[in-house]
Amino acid sequence: MSTWDPNIVVFACNWCSYAGADTAGVARLQHQPHFRMIRVMCSGRIQPGFVLRAFEKGADGVLVSGCHFGDCHYVFGNERAVEQFEKTRNVVRLLGLEEGRLRLEWISAAEGKRFAEVIDEFTDQVRALGPSPLAGERAGAAAHA
């Protein structure tokens, strides 16, 4: 392979962001395919452990997404998600990972186009950062497990 492609994990809430990705699909809005989506009911469910596990297992980037403020299906789940995200970001910093590998975005069910744009932009950003330093470690560790 001539170019290196990152491996990105996307967490999305069922009601907005996951639906936004579907909307992108219905409109056939092409975007880069190097992410893997994990659906949860609400962004409030996305705990620091999920994100950190993804990095630990070798993800090069993690995107956390949910509904815009005021739109959360469970009223304030996304506001809780922000607080969790802040905690996560601190740990990611401590791990020595670049901040650009982690991102939080609000994408509504209607914003298929925005979804595609966010994915493209984030993918490029992570690609520019290169492989995660933890990805190598993890691969090495796995060999001993």
Partner: peptide, 23 residues
């Protein structure tokens, strides 16, 4: 959180990263 338990989500995360990291 039933149906979205830590185990279930972890399993997905691990599988998402597995081949990419060569495991």
């Amino acid at each position: 959180a039933r149906h979205f338990t830590d185990r279930q989500v972890h399993a997905m995360i691990d599988a998402a990263c597995a081949v990419a990291a060569g495991a």
